[in-house]
């Protein structure tokens, strides 16, 4: 159950006073999977909490696709309860045990 601390770069308010655009903040607030924290100078802190990796990845993809999000930085990631790992594809189509 991954948890990520994110810093989202968003457009600044139209008056260029250094605050984040209200439209961007509203768009982010509408996302149930995201909890917002402090915001300043066009950057918003957030935590992304997901039940599993597929939904974590889907949420990140949703964020990336938002026109109000210009950049995503990650400052913290916990994966202490991940235990199953997929194996990569192999050119010879063989299995993925030790070579």
């Amino acid at each position: 159950m991954p948890v990520s601390g994110l810093v989202l770069t968003v457009p600044r308010a139209a008056d260029q006073a250094g605050e984040c655009s209200p439209e961007a903040l509203a768009a982010l607030r509408s996302l149930a999977f995201l909890e917002l924290g402090a915001a300043k100078d066009g950057r918003v802190s957030a935590v992304l909490d997901a039940s599993d990796y597929p939904s974590h990845d889907a949420h990140l993809a949703t964020l990336r696709a938002l026109p109000q999000v210009t950049w995503i930085d990650v400052v913290f990631h916990d994966f202490s309860d991940v235990s199953d790992f997929e194996r990569p594809p192999r050119r010879d189509g063989g299995s993925h045990g030790p070579a």
Partner: peptide
């Protein structure tokens, strides 16, 4: 923790 770390960065 995650939110605090992100907020500190911001």
């Amino acid at each position: 923790s995650a939110l605090s770390a992100a907020a500190a960065s911001v």
